[in-house]
């Protein structure tokens, strides 16, 4: 597989917030001197992609893949946010090196606090799960998924969830 970061299986099961739950609000650094609040994005879908760490030792990794799919997310007016426990300076270097065009949020201090509230913190590793949430414009989680931490979940589930948010099926993105 293309992603070799991880142990073969989740050592413990987390209880990620499920569809129907209100997305916990947060405000985190998106750059060393800028913060981004979930509430700022009210009115449009948000894709929250928790991932274990910057600098995954593969190319075509999860964030690189989502970067390539950004135009498709934008057709749904959706904002993608990557989030990990790495610090803002680490994120800045990672985003620059990988040419990422979406915010990476630093769930850094207190470490993993946002991941804890979404139910996707891995105590044994000190990182987050590889977890996806699609939040609607009203701030309600409409879809969530926790991938085995070593397996990049791809984007098919995200796109299906975004499509389901559309009032009519025909408004979905064309391929």
């Amino acid at each position: 597989m293309s992603d070799t970061l991880a142990t073969p299986a989740n050592a413990t099961r987390t209880t990620a917030l499920a569809a129907g739950a209100t997305a916990p609000l947060f405000s985190l650094n998106a750059t060393p001197n800028q913060t981004l609040s979930l509430s700022d994005l009210r009115g449009r879908p948000v894709i929250l992609a928790f991932y274990p760490a910057d600098w995954s030792p593969v190319c075509g990794d999860q964030m690189g893949l989502y970067n390539a799919i950004l135009p498709e997310f934008h057709r749904f007016d959706a904002q993608l946010l990557g989030i990990s426990v790495d610090g803002a300076w680490c994120h800045a270097a990672f985003a620059e090196q990988r040419h990422l065009h979406f915010p990476l949020l630093a769930d850094f201090e207190p470490k993993g606090a946002v991941a804890q509230r979404y139910g996707v913190y891995r105590d044994q590793d000190g990182t987050t799960e590889r977890a996806l949430f699609v939040i609607d414009g009203e701030g309600i989680i409409r879809w969530s998924y926790v991938s085995p931490v070593g397996i990049n979940p791809g984007a098919d589930g995200i796109l299906a969830a975004l499509e389901a948010l559309q009032p009519q099926a025909t408004q979905g993105a064309r391929s």
């Binding site: 992603d3 999860q62 979940p153 796109l159 391929s175």
Partner: peptide, 17 residues
């Protein structure tokens, strides 16, 4: 592009898939 998007929809999660 059609190959690429079909891949995305199929769960391609990096290369090679």
């Amino acid at each position: 592009r059609a190959d690429f998007m079909g891949g995305v929809r199929s769960g391609v999660n990096g290369t090679p898939s």
